[in-house]
Write a protein that binds this DNA or RNA. Structure first.
Lengths: 201, 201
DNA sequence: GCGCGCATACCTTGCGGTCGGTATTCTCCC
DNA sequence: GGGAGAATACCGACCGCAAGGTATGCGCGC
């Protein structure tokens, strides 16, 4: 246990946590730094000691928290998988957890809010989307190699389709009242995944 | 031509137009009323004469402009249609026009930004999504009646799936650099639509 | 002249961001 | 090893400004 001096990491972490909660709830523009430091039980001085400005705070949170959360939710579980069943089961699991404020929904919400090309935040978000697509495409590639997935399908295109659909569900069926809409999407998604299966499987 | 006295409608319309441009570009929280009146070459006085507050301005724009734009883009062209080909062709057309700031993208962006249940704006957006889903479901119902669409498909579920996908594309492939991602989604979408077709067709 | 439609000026609040100060810890030298 | 000094980690008051919103005035058609 190399106990450091005063662990500035925990202050920084508290700020990132508080910022994340507000970003998830109110978006980037809707989040005020005052509310962040209040939530973290800290002060502006601490915030601007660790981050030069609001944008840097958001970037740090996206890179260090949101990205790893998406990885844990969607990339890591499929790292070695090559079956459509694994993908379907993961979708069922994730859909059952979908709620406003979770990592999947927040990724979509921030990507929708931030205007492209004008700043680097959207680039960070696009990077997460790219990694997500790559993970799905990888699974489909392996599934093709294993003969479970039809030869004619194009993994990159299907992965883009898949990721867009998940993002769209979080946007169009956001409210709690749309739980049946989410279920409908999941049902159709499962049917769609079956169409990727090789006939010989 | 019943020319009214001074046509307050055109001032109101100018304000709605200006507000819409900013909502599309910066979202709700990112839009300032000052920039709206500047864009419309008017003043705060005019704005608050026609709308009691910012939220009402946004609601009016959503109800009067965004809703009708979505209707013109996605509902009206399919009003009588019953074929998958009509839907596919419309998708091709709309995908070719997709760009940040258009009605489809703005609907998704606002729906993603606005937190559900806390205000009536998200209810207005949900209403648009509902109408959109209903239009797609109607087409699928008619297609089933016409025997072109497979009997086992559930129109409501497929419609939710479809609308979520379009929204997701506008979010995950927003930047101009992702034109190929949009094309990939369109390609997979067309393949997916084909799976709805009745074998006997 | 009276009310509608809008402009001007202004108010309050809260925003992102700055700055000097202070306590604590690390570093270096003897 | 221990003390001086630099660097770190954080506080809290403060600033300029732009935000949403208001109060009042003015022109013009009826």
């Amino acid at each position: 246990m190399t106990q450091r001096k005063k662990q500035p990491q925990i202050t920084r972490a508290a700020l990132l946590d508080a910022a994340g909660e507000h970003f998830a709830r109110a978006g980037y523009a809707g989040t005020s730094l005052g509310s962040v430091v209040t939530r973290a039980a800290l002060t502006k001085g601490a915030l601007f000691h660790h981050f030069p400005d609001k944008r840097s705070l958001a970037q740090a949170w996206i890179d260090e928290r949101l990205a790893s959360a998406v990885t844990a939710l969607w990339l890591a579980p499929l790292e070695q998988a090559d079956s459509l069943d694994a993908l379907r089961n993961l979708c069922r699991l994730r859909f059952s957890e979908l709620a406003p404020g979770d990592a999947t929904s927040t990724l979509s919400a921030l990507a929708a809010e931030l205007t492209p090309a004008d700043d680097l935040l959207s680039a960070c978000l696009a990077q997460i989307h790219d990694a997500w697509r790559a993970a799905i495409a990888g699974l489909l590639e392996r599934g093709k190699a294993a003969g479970q997935i039809h030869r004619s399908i194009k993994p990159a295109a299907e992965a883009a389709f898949f990721v867009a659909l998940i993002a769209g569900v979080t946007v169009t069926a956001k409210a709690a009242a749309h739980a049946d809409t989410r279920r409908a999407c999941l049902s159709s998604l499962e049917d769609y995944l079956e169409t990727l299966r090789s006939q010989s499987a």
